[in-house]
């Protein structure tokens, strides 16, 4: 495993109370793997990765969790003394941008508007590799060409506002790639883009992962994006991973009612018939006041009494496929079939 996150919990202190954004979550990413993290707003899908990068906001805390990247421990939890925190910062500075690259959602705000692309691209290369400016520029031109920007030599001298949204996202990807990271975290990289541009960017991410052997964590809310691109998918709801598995396992052997609900809520335009949408009722829970037990229970059509008050355990179905739901408990089937017999 290139990246191994165990039992990560992240909390934020707000004036209204403590928000538990990520709760006891495990992630694993192998080298060269494309992993999708799917969830809706407030599911904690981005927070986990920001924590890994050490980019948590000031009011964030990490009570539990170990993070191991490429054999090194980079856990942000349990940093009590000042020396420990400084030591962690030093370790992270070497890894951040260098071994782990990051692509953000909004290409409009990530680039500094008053610096040329050349300046923004070579900066990171020079600080991390200690090469000359000429060499850095040469690398940067090569990168821009690789991400599909025409005339990279001359466009290097331009400012971000002279590029379209799609082109800016390409530049951000080029910056993320500039130091040959082992892992790239892409946080909703195409949400702000149009579909035709989205297709281009996704294809580029796929090519880079396949050709360079780079691992990618793709954070998204769009099941369509992960279906074609990801080897493995984790579905998150209210700070927990509710189901994970390969793309085929998630789509064709769906176990968790929330995953079912997500699949029922989308309409594939290429399917022949117009299928009825089966939405998930209700609204996502407030992270300030999560229900006891399973957070999805209030919206779940198949909720049982046990779901209220008892958090479900994780059940594994294969080496890759697991689900945290009481319905996976053997007793659920038994009781369900009994009630069905009695009612019919």
């Amino acid at each position: 495993m290139l990246l191994n996150i165990q039992d990560l919990t992240v909390e934020f202190t707000t004036p209204q109370g403590t928000v538990r954004a990520v709760r006891n979550v495990d992630y694993g990413v192998g080298a060269g793997e494309i992993v999708g993290v799917v969830g809706e707003s407030g599911s904690g899908k981005s927070v986990g990765m920001l924590t890994l990068m050490g980019l948590l906001a000031d009011n964030g805390r990490v009570p539990t969790g170990t993070i191991e990247f490429d054999g090194r421990d980079i856990s942000p939890s349990g940093l009590t003394s000042k020396a420990q925190r400084r030591d962690y910062e030093v370790r992270m500075r070497k890894i951040r941008g260098n071994e782990i690259g990051m692509i953000f959602q909004d290409p409009m705000t990530y680039l500094n508007p008053i610096l040329t692309i050349r300046r923004q691209m070579t900066e990171g290369i020079i600080t991390h590799t200690r090469c000359t400016e000429k060499e850095a520029e040469h690398i940067a031109v090569g990168l821009l060409g690789r991400v599909g920007i025409p005339n990279p030599q001359s466009r290097m001298r331009q400012y971000p506002f002279e590029f379209s949204g799609g082109m800016r996202q390409r530049i951000i990807i080029a910056i993320a790639l500039s130091l040959n990271p082992k892992l790239v975290i892409a946080d909703e990289p195409t949400t702000a883009l149009d579909v035709t541009v989205q297709a281009q960017i996704l294809e580029m991410i796929r090519k880079l992962a396949r050709e360079e052997g780079m691992a990618v964590v793709l954070i998204t809310h769009d099941l369509g994006v992960v279906a074609s691109l990801c080897d493995r998918i984790s579905i998150m709801y209210a700070g927990r991973i509710v189901e994970e598995g390969t793309a085929d396992e998630i789509f064709y052997d769906t176990r968790h009612p929330y995953t079912e609900g997500l699949l029922g809520s989308i309409n594939n335009h290429s399917t022949d018939a117009k299928k009825a949408l089966i939405p998930i009722p209700g609204s996502p829970p407030d992270l300030l006041k999560l229900p006891d037990g399973c957070a999805f229970a209030p919206r779940c059509a198949r909720a049982m009494r046990v779901c209220v008050g008892h958090a479900p355990a994780r059940t594994a179905f294969s080496e890759t496929h697991s689900c945290s739901c009481w319905l996976c408990d053997p007793r659920a089937n038994r009781v369900h079939s009994e009630t069905e017999v009695t009612t019919t």
Partner: peptide
Amino acid sequence: SMNMNMDTNVDVNMNISDDLFLPL
């Protein structure tokens, strides 16, 4: 967190009675 190569479902919550598995 469970070891991934287990293929059977393990019941650790023996204290949870069967009638809790009735629909909500």
